[in-house]
Design a protein around this nucleic acid. Structure first.
Length: 429
RNA sequence: GGUGAGGUGGCCGAGUAGGUCGAAGGCGCUCGCCUGCUAAGCGAGUAGAGGUAAUCCCUCUCGAGGGUUCGAAUCCCUCCCUCACCGCCA
């Protein structure tokens, strides 16, 4: 959420940001409403001032045994007028809040202006895509052949875009989670969190999923609870409505969670394989930072995520998203894309964003720079560190052998109990 | 789910026959004084949000929302949460 005072002071900046993002928004309506709100507010406040004064006078008169009935009559009218105007004020405030909640964040000045994916800027590559002397298969074929990915039974149990992972595949999924968490907690300084997988609507508002993206969420019928689409939601909202004491920042947290997304509107996309699932696992990184250092923190966070892929030996590239391709809450986003030989292209496996104070304002997360200073909003950052299912898919494709077996990356062998290869077993199950 | 108790400032804790209470007192914290050092002691300060260019000023906030009243932390209604006991349960 943007600061209303900022919009008031520099509406052209907001207008430009909206244009660069490809958003249409009735900014003039908002400004007009803001003006009316403040006008009415001034009226109410001065009437209240009058009422407060007179109420004290009445108390004094009564104490002296004088008759205050004249003042009482006057105040009855004032009180009615206040009630009437207050209705208007709260209506306007509600409308302003609703409008404000739909304005996306302002892109950082270093973000390229562009309409969509094609205008993103590649900033670096790592690793050499392997040369195959056979035709590399897509991961879903490998997974089915090894009997570790079971799409039919996933669909039977739930619906399409749900998959059952079996045997050494499940073990590999678990190994990846543990490997990523260990890396971030022991080497990158993140604190491990195991949060709820369901959160309430207030938390969803705080990180920006609500109200605009409600159709992307799974909701519980009888409770004000939603399945989280990413651990960013519970992690970022950890300090909702709090003022962090001096010296708290930066805070680094990480969590493994399952993530749940309805994927409304991506009907035809990535139907095969485990790239786009309704339920998937992810290890998430979240930082709370002082405004002055948040962009350094973003660069570090991207490196933390990249390190996962380096250790796994998976080639990738880092892409700076343009204004038109960024998420609603982000001021600047880097995507990390892993090389998928079976598809012959790079696929997003991590997305790291600096939301500046956009989410902090929504979730009311502040800190005190020092005991004497006023609270300020923190900057919040989030990034995948990284998407587990997509990593598993990338391993299957990058480490596949001609005979259909898959080599386990060296760093994962301890997590696999010493197993170095997943080979077709021939057994059903 | 049932019954009972309770939700006040960073923390503890006063404050109900409604009136000058954003709120006593204590702790903590900040600054100063004092003191070989530390502890103790003394003095001052110490919530958040909004309106305004802004110190001042004004308004709002005693779990949330609504009501009664000239006026509510204090009265009424609804909801939420916490704690205790019971029931159920991984």
């Amino acid at each position: 959420m943007l600061d209303l005072r900022f919009i008031r002071k520099d509406p052209e900046r907001v207008r430009l940001a909206l244009k660069n993002r490809g958003y249409s928004f009735p900014l003039d309506d908002l400004l007009k409403k803001d003006e009316e709100w403040r006008a009415v507010l001034v009226q109410v406040q001065s009437l209240k001032e009058r009422r407060n004064e007179v109420s004290k006078e009445i108390a004094v008169m009564k104490a002296k045994g004088e008759d205050p009935s004249e003042l009482l009559a006057e105040m009855r009218d004032v009180s009615d007028k206040i009630k009437e105007l207050e209705k208007r004020v709260s209506t306007l405030e509600e409308e302003l809040r609703e409008m404000l909640a739909l304005i996306p964040n302002i892109p950082h000045e270093s973000v390229p202006v562009g309409a969509g994916e094609e205008d993103n800027v590649e900033v670096r590559r790592w690793g050499e895509p392997r040369k195959f002397d056979f035709e590399p298969k897509p991961h879903w074929e490998i997974g089915e052949m090894l009997d570790i990915l079971d799409f039919e039974r996933g669909t039977k149990l739930a619906e399409s875009r749900f998959t059952v992972i079996k045997g050494l595949g499940a073990r590999l999924e678990r190994a990846l989670i543990n490997f990523m968490l260990d890396l971030h907690t022991t080497e990158h300084g993140y604190k491990e969190i195991f949060p709820p997988f369901l959160v309430n609507s207030k938390a969803m508002f705080g990180t920006g999923q609500l109200p605009k993206f409600e159709q992307e969420l799974y909701r519980c019928r009888d409770d004000d609870l939603y399945l989280i689409p990413t651990a960013e939601v519970p992690l970022t909202n950890l300090f909702m409505d709090e003022i962090l004491p001096p010296g708290s920042l930066p805070i680094y947290v990480t969590a493994y969670t399952a993530c749940f997304r309805r994927e409304a509107g991506s009907y035809g996309k990535d139907i095969r394989g485990i790239i786009r699932q309704h339920q998937f696992n992810k290890v998430e990184l979240v930082k709370f930072s002082e405004p002055e250092t948040s962009y350094e923190e973003l660069e570090k966070m991207v490196r933390d995520a990249e390190e996962v892929l380096r250790r796994l030996g998976l080639p990738y590239r880092v892409v700076l998203l343009c204004t038109g391709d960024m998420g609603f809450t982000s001021a600047k986003t880097y995507d990390i894309e892993v090389w998928m030989p079976g598809q012959g292209r790079y696929r997003e496996i991590s997305s790291c964003s600096n939301c500046e104070e956009f989410q902090a304002r929504r979730a009311n997360i502040r800190y005190k720079p020092s005991a004497a200073e006023k609270p300020r909003y923190v900057h919040t950052l989030n990034g995948s560190g990284v998407a587990v299912g997509r990593t598993l898919a990338a391993i299957l494709e990058n480490y596949q052998q001609e005979d259909g077996s898959v080599i386990i990356p060296e760093v994962l062998v301890p997590y696999m109990g010493g197993i170095r290869v997943i080979a077709p077993s021939g057994s059903m199950g």
